[in-house]
Design a binder for these strands. Structure first.
Length: 707
DNA sequence: GTTAGTTCTGTTTTT
DNA sequence: CAGAACTAAC
């Protein structure tokens, strides 16, 4: 059935309707007014992009090469759907990061310029699932007030389990076992690329421990990140009525970064899209760099097979990089066997060639880069903000930080140790967690003796045993500490006091208008400040810890001010699922950016340095199994650069305290020689270069003195 | 129950 | 080398 809408401006729109889309009709009349806004946005697209935007019904695969205007296409498409009269509630766009979803939301809505359009649901996989589970999880036998365990929670739980079953073999680290459990949960075993099929020792152990872990999580009334997805999938599989509800609701589904989806995510999307298959996925198999985390590039490679009738749109025009950079990228990536054929092209100039520099060692490399950064600043008038230094592993940031500091160059390190890793934040968060979820024995265990309140391991062991015998929570056991005859009177009181403290604050968080005030007084009540001073003998360190938790309180205040119905659960969810702390600091990003190859995906910089491009680092020695993914990683790095790209490597490098010779990465040879330029440190400046740099130098001084 | 010394180990990490 | 985690003595 076709419905034709006649607009005031002699423009006709054909809208195909399906039987279940009756509510579309109700909307069209008021939408026609806004088509001109939409037309403007669409007119800015190239033909391929236009095709992707206007194809609204049936499965659509958008293969979006790096820098091909992917975000513009997705956001325009969302806006386009709304402009057609599709109700906002029927549109679902799923992303991986909060940053991406935020950007998508803002840009899509800005295309429509308000005009009374409601915002569709644009969310990450995890928060989408959380929202569904909050409503439906009782159907799976969980309690509604569950909390989310982050990886350090998981880790310590697993540690407990291992010691409980007296698994003492230290050669198996809890992290590795946890990683394996996570892979199992993400249905890696059933993956089509699945090479994890061969059962090794870790697989055997994790298989043994997984049921115990799962059981423990359930009694703790907690779910982990994987569970959010897995339980939602289970919900959809076991409760068709629930699935139908969401299927009916989400009639237009879009998935960003589809190459990064794992099997569970694939199944979720598959189920949700249902018969209708109004599913649009966007991705680039060449940028699939999360295979080690369960991402299955097979999902994008086989999309056509999985969804018959798929229309494929290739976005290959690159708007980001100069020609030489693109040729380097193409030259490298074409060595991969398993990929969808595509080749980026640009209308832009060739630009400078790709610079290769060989340093003697890591410090030399860092110093050279830092000096080059200054040269760029003064000679080419580049801003520090325009420059990024990208490395394979976060630990490489160190020498660059030092060299930049030495040159007085401002910089920002992205990633690395996150805010949550700090002990004081984890401690205080544990207080919040036990208040939010009285079954969370793990958090209670963590803070039972922090600060010291005379509840050592032995006392806690007794309490834990008592809770087990009576199948009650640890908190409940503390409330009833008086009944435990093995405990001394003092300990009984200590435990009961703690239980009272938790109970009191639990109700305070529930009733008090401003949670952050309650939080602050809780921190004061437990004398956490003094505890920190005891812990760190030099007052400077203690003070910085105090500042850190002050920030934490501030972020709670921030959360409360922006949320319409703030709650402790809500805050903890935001804490687990979004990077609350970095959110605030986002604007503070300035200077040269130091970032890992992985986190650089999606970003762009006029000048990029990819450093440490050596064998055993860039194809990393631990990922020999998947050189193609390493190559994609390099490809991602190259395609971040807009104007100028530098690639550096060393002749020897200190690794774990030992000096080892290093060889240039095999990937460097894959860059066509005609786009390469080897830079020699001792190369003298040509007279005109010298003149230019002198000019630039003086111009810069003038700048600094004058305006 | 805490502390200082010792051994061990070493990617990437959107949530 | 450096941080974590474990052990052995206060």
């Amino acid at each position: 059935m076709f419905l034709t809408i006649i607009t005031s401006k002699k423009r006709t729109f054909k809208l195909r309707l399906r039987q279940c889309d009756t509510d579309v009709c109700l909307y069209h009349a008021e939408q026609v007014r806004y088509l001109s806004v939409m037309d403007k946005a669409i007119s800015r697209l190239n033909p391929k992009q236009k095709e992707a935007v206007m194809h609204t019904e049936g499965p659509l695969l958008i293969l979006a090469g790096a820098g091909s205007g992917k975000t513009r296409v997705i956001t325009t498409r969302v806006a386009y759907l709304l402009s057609l009269g599709v109700p906002a509630g029927a549109v679902l766009a799923v992303t991986f990061t909060n940053k991406a979803s935020k950007e998508m939301r803002e840009r899509a809505m800005s295309i429509l310029q308000g005009n009374g359009y409601k915002t569709p649901l644009i969310s990450t996989f995890h928060s989408l699932c959380l929202n569904i589970l909050r409503r439906e999880i009782d159907k799976l036998g969980y309690r509604q007030d569950f909390t989310i365990f982050d990886s350090s929670d998981q880790h310590s739980l697993l540690r407990n389990i291992l010691s409980e079953i007296k698994f003492e073999d230290k050669s198996f680290k809890p992290e590795h076992i946890m990683e394996r459990i996570s892979m199992t949960k993400n249905e890696m075993a059933r993956s089509r690329t699945g090479k994890t099929a061969s059962p090794d020792d870790i697989a055997i152990i994790s298989e043994m421990v997984y049921p115990k872990y799962h059981e423990a999580m359930k009694t703790l009334n907690a779910v982990d990140f994987d569970d959010l997805l897995l339980l939602t999938l289970q919900l959809f599989r076991d409760h068709p009525a629930v699935l139908d509800k969401y299927r009916f609701r989400f009639r237009y589904i879009m998935v960003d970064e589809y190459q990064d989806t794992n099997r569970v995510q694939y199944n979720l999307i598959h189920l949700l899209s249902g018969e209708r298959k109004n599913l649009c996925v966007v991705g680039d198999d060449d940028q699939s760099i999360y295979g080690w985390r369960g991402a299955d590039p097979g999902n994008i490679l086989d999309f056509e097979k999985d969804f018959p009738g798929t229309v494929i749109v290739r976005l290959e025009q690159n708007y980001r990089s100069f020609g030489h950079i693109l040729q380097a990228a193409n030259g490298v990536i074409k060595n991969n066997k398993k990929r969808m054929e595509k080749s980026l092209w640009t209308e832009r100039d060739q630009g400078p060639k790709v610079n290769i520099f060989r340093a003697t060692d890591g410090d030399d490399e860092a110093q050279w880069v830092a000096d080059r950064v200054e040269l760029l600043k003064f000679e080419k008038k580049a801003s520090y903000d325009d420059i990024a230094i990208i490395y394979r592993a976060n630990l490489f940031s160190r020498p660059f930080e030092e060299a930049l500091r030495k040159n007085r160059v401002p910089y920002t390190v992205v990633g690395g140790t996150s805010y949550f890793e700090h002990r004081e934040i984890k401690d205080l968060a544990a207080y919040l967690k036990i208040c939010a979820n009285s079954s969370d024995d793990l958090s209670l265990m963590r803070i039972a003796n922090v600060p010291k309140r005379g509840l050592g391991p032995t006392a806690l062991g007794r309490l834990a045993a008592f809770s087990k015998e009576n199948s009650i929570s640890l908190l409940q056991a503390m409330r009833r500490a008086g009944e435990i005859s093995e405990l001394g009177d003092k300990i009984k009181n200590n435990a009961a006091d703690l239980a009272r403290l938790i109970d009191k604050n639990t109700s305070l968080f529930r009733t008090k208008r401003e949670m952050n005030k309650a939080f602050r007084s809780l921190i004061e009540e437990i004398n956490y400040r003094d505890y920190l001073h005891e812990l760190h003998k030099n007052p400077k360190a203690a003070l910085s810890r105090i500042e850190a938790y002050e920030d934490f309180i501030l972020s709670m205040a921030h959360y409360e001010s922006k949320e319409s119905a703030p709650s402790l659960h809500g805050f903890l969810e935001a804490l687990a699922l979004t990077d609350l702390m970095n959110e605030k600091d986002e604007k503070k990003m300035f200077g040269v950016t130091l970032i890992s190859l992985h986190s650089s995906k999606g970003l762009e910089f006029p000048v990029v340095f990819i450093v440490g491009v050596e064998e055993d680092i860039l194809p990393h020695k631990k990922s020999v199994g998947d050189v193609e993914e390493e190559r994609r990683l390099f490809y991602v790095g190259i395609t971040r650069a807009m104007k100028e790209l530098f690639i550096t490597h060393t002749t020897h490098r200190i690794k774990y305290g030992k000096d080892v010779p290093s060889n240039p990465s095999r990937f460097i040879e894959e860059i066509p020689v005609e786009v390469l330029k080897k830079i020699d440190r001792f190369e003298k400046e040509t007279p005109e270069q010298a003149e230019n740099s002198a000019k630039a130098f003086f111009a810069n001084i003038k700048d600094m003195l004058g305006e």
